[in-house]
Design a protein around this nucleic acid. Sequence first.
DNA 1: TATAACATTGACGTAAACGGTAATCTTGTT
DNA 2: AACAAGATTACCGTTTACGTCAATGTTATA
Lengths: 159, 159
Amino acid sequence: MIATDEHFFSENTDALRLYSIDQVAAQTGLTKRTLRYYEEVGLLPPTGRTEGNYRRYSDEDIHRLEHIKKLRDLLGFSLADIRAMLEVDDERGILKEAYQHETEAAARVAQLDRGDELIRRQLQIIEQKMAGLEQMRATLEANIERHERKRKLLLKNSL
Amino acid sequence: MIATDEHFFSENTDALRLYSIDQVAAQTGLTKRTLRYYEEVGLLPPTGRTEGNYRRYSDEDIHRLEHIKKLRDLLGFSLADIRAMLEVDDERGILKEAYQHETEAAARVAQLDRGDELIRRQLQIIEQKMAGLEQMRATLEANIERHERKRKLLLKNSL
DNA sequence: TATAACATTGACGTAAACGGTAATCTTGTT
DNA sequence: AACAAGATTACCGTTTACGTCAATGTTATA
């Protein structure tokens, strides 16, 4: 019986495919231990469960986990940082919910503005990192170009 | 007496200004403990010392420490990763040394090639990170633009 | 020269982010 | 029905990257 699952996701518009912890581990590249850990520390909201108390992950769960992994590996964020980022995302989600039900135009615009503010805050962090990386990249490329010039010089002199 | 320092750096072409651990901590934003730790684990080669066994940091040391910090904060690298990167840099340094003393053009070109190879390897890592960041950035900006369109729509409908 | 304010090296402590194991269920298969 | 395979929680262990003393030595200054 999977009535439990149906209950949890019956009002979800997503494709309600569910995955075992093994499948999710394989797809995300995270270990099963890590999946349980992220749930334990609240990075991932409690997943659905089968009647036998086995975890069942939704597509949304997987998406969130992949996002977490990106933040961890790409940005080198700590789980605390990631939690903060996700809370922003979650607020955006709530905002979006509210947006749907809001009828007044002015209030809708205000909610869009608030969403933008949250997004821009994240953009700033990312752009800051990118600027630093860009500088490192420029330095390295300058070295390659310097080598290029030296090579040409050597070639000219050897003629 | 600072004969020790003079001995250590007498053949260094750099400005041989030396800094106390406090000064370096202030300038790099690393704690004194971290400075000692990085030296202890070999990320920073042993610094010069005063007669009284106090550490004296050179400009080169500071430069290396700032580089380490960038790798740590920007790329989110572990100290193990950073050690690997620095070893590449160090090999480049050695290569450069050898280059100076090499007289044969062919050998010089070969060394430039080897240097390029090392640099490109680092470039690849950086570009990979940047690509990931760029993607996140694009996603966020797409959301802002989506909001922009919605705002315009609301404005039009409210007239 | 005495004292305060710095430094040094152990040594132990700690928060973060999991890894690994034990005891106990659950489930697909024979 | 029985058994192997895999899941769950609980709990202890580990690594990384430092923080925090304590005991001791050094140095600038009154």
